[in-house]
Amino acid sequence: MTQVLPAQENREVVLKIRGLKKVFNPGKKGEVRAIDNISFDIYKGETLGLVGESGSGKSTTGRSIIKLESITSGEVTYKGQDISKLNNKQEVLKFRKSMQMIFQDPFASLNPRIPVKTIIGDALRLHKICSTDAEVTQRVNELLDIVGINRSYANRYPTEFSGGQCQRIGIARALCVQPDFIIADECLSALDVSIQAQIVNLLIKLRKERAITYLFIAHDLSMVKYISDRIAVMKDGKILELADADELYNRPLHPYTISLLSASPLTDLHKEKQRKRIDYDTSTHKYPEGTVAGMYEILPGHWVYCSAAEVLKYQQQALSASDMGN
């Protein structure tokens, strides 16, 4: 079933995803349905958090959007253009000039054999942003300033930097084409706590200054909550719940979201000692054949994956949750 999500009023949709599917090894023994029919919109200037456990398909979703993976079926429309129709190199380059990605492992995503100025400079040359060496050097220096790396380090190699610094270089490389849209795929998980906060502040600063739209993929719920406007919860290739960040945390509806929130450790000792973990039964989101299940809007802007028969149940649950809130 393809669901139609109505656009929120007065907000421009940058990225529209409808019925996206990605199957690895289709028809073979090791068939994996990494993404199983998901649909969502990302509005201009917002940060959409995508959370889920490993294997839930959240990274594959990010990689499919930026065309690092081919999609099996479905539609990904970026600024009105169907990205699956971009075939030749020129078109893909043009598309990537607008959309960039920051990767999980800051060390593995930088070539260890070339210095930082070449890592960033090559991207500038590839996209034909700068032509002369002097221009490239100047632009690289500007980018290093933005991400807070000393200009004099431009001749160094990635191995000479710490994880946090490498991640900043990865961000500088993503920023060099002045993208409007950045996919941050677990860009914090390899970093130390004190460095994570620095990178988050950098991402927020860039969002403010350049109106960048983010798809922020992570498994750390408190960080996602902090940075995101809206959050989608993924499990087994499906989006199970999608709502405003505050709404999702204050009034989670799907049992999986509730379980995920209950499992997240809290930094407050007393609250943490009292925290009760709620287990999730994976059969909840597996419906027998013939049942029509999909995303239903339980409250305005709050979507839950369920069958038509369950909508009423979730609506009542939402109402009683808000009663309790009052």
């Binding site: 706590v193 004190s194 906060a197 620095q198 927020i204 719920l221 408190s222 902090y226 809290l266 930094t267």
Partner: peptide, 16 residues
């Protein structure tokens, strides 16, 4: 520097 689920501050405290 670790936001809790109800941190609302504009900027996250970070160790430079």
């Amino acid at each position: 520097s670790m936001p809790s689920l109800d941190t609302e501050d504009e900027n996250l405290y970070s160790i430079p």
